[in-house]
């Protein structure tokens, strides 16, 4: 970005106004309904809106909206690989890149990819890789770019779903769709598909079993392609959490399938009867 050095610019460091607001203690209500009307301890994922093929320039693209979490994903390729030094040319290579728009979170982010985004990119890549038939694309690379437009929680899980949908829309051969789902464990109860506030809840310190878990799942192969947790959870809680996430993925599955079928129909309308 060109900068005008003659002009007096703003301060180098600025802080978001939200830091100075005296927040009322935003504790999660410990039982019953959540802020958006869903219930705790129920596999109650937010309704999603999904569309394929929005970006005409890309080979495949997808848009997903779950509550206020909005993501767009584009897939380019397969094209000839840029890296020629790779010894293993029998398989194609998948590259994933996940970014947050600077305005996507309550506090402004930077355009430059931070280490958190790199970590999420790696998670997206490792989740998608088992599902793509990379051996069908020798000497080529496939690029997946995910952009988070608005982050209201569970961005990684939806990014994975969105990316696999875009891959399918691009006509890349895959073994299965990849669906992502995350939960936020709060003591003995869990919140599936948490919102941003629930994700960064202020009562992390208190009690046991505070943590979050994201699972990506291949529904028709019954395989887990990605798994990550943080916080501190007991082993049984973790196992239960993984099962809950898988259940959440199955809830998402028909919606994603429909969107895909719709996209295929739209691309090639069925021949008329006459």
């Amino acid at each position: 970005m060109p900068t005008d050095t003659k002009r007096v610019r703003g301060p180098e460091v600025s802080q978001s106004l939200s830091r100075f607001i005296c927040k009322p203690e935003t504790t999660l209500p410990s039982d019953g309904t959540r802020a958006d009307g869903r219930n705790r301890d129920q596999v109650d994922v937010r309704p999603v809106f999904v569309r394929c093929g929005l970006v005409s320039q890309a080979k495949g693209s997808a848009y997903i909206e779950a509550g206020n979490t909005k993501l767009i994903c584009c897939v380019y390729g397969p094209k000839e690989t840029e890296r020629k030094d790779e010894t293993d040319m029998k398989c194609g290579r998948l590259f994933a890149d996940m970014r947050f728009a600077p305005f996507s979170c309550p506090e402004r982010g930077s355009w430059i990819q931070g280490s958190q985004e790199k970590d999420l990119s790696l998670m997206v890549l490792e989740s998608l890789q088992p599902a793509v038939c990379l051996h069908k694309y020798p000497r080529s690379q496939i690029d997946v770019n995910v952009m988070v437009l608005e982050n209201n929680g569970s961005a990684l899980a939806h990014a994975i779903t969105c990316a696999s949908l875009a891959l399918a829309d691009a006509g890349i051969e895959m073994y299965d769709l990849v669906l992502g789902c995350s939960i936020r464990q709060d003591g003995a109860s869990y919140l599936i598909d948490p919102t941003f506030l629930e994700e960064s809840g202020s009562n992390w310190a208190s009690g046991e079993n505070q943590g979050s878990l994201t699972v990506s799942f291949l529904p028709s192969l019954n395989q887990i392609s990605g798994l990550q947790s943080d916080g501190e959870m007991g082993e049984e809680t973790l196992t239960a959490g993984v099962r809950t996430c898988i259940e959440g993925c199955y809830k998402l599955y028909p919606v994603i399938q429909q969107a895909l079928v719709k996209a295929v129909r739209g691309a090639a309308p069925p021949p008329s009867e006459s």
Binding site: E208, S225, Q228, S229, D230
Partner: peptide
């Protein structure tokens, strides 16, 4: 307790 669990590598695992 477990403070981090993560799958690494390019494959998938059975639940």
């Amino acid at each position: 307790t477990c403070t981090c669990m993560r799958k690494v590598g390019g494959g998938s695992l059975d639940p």
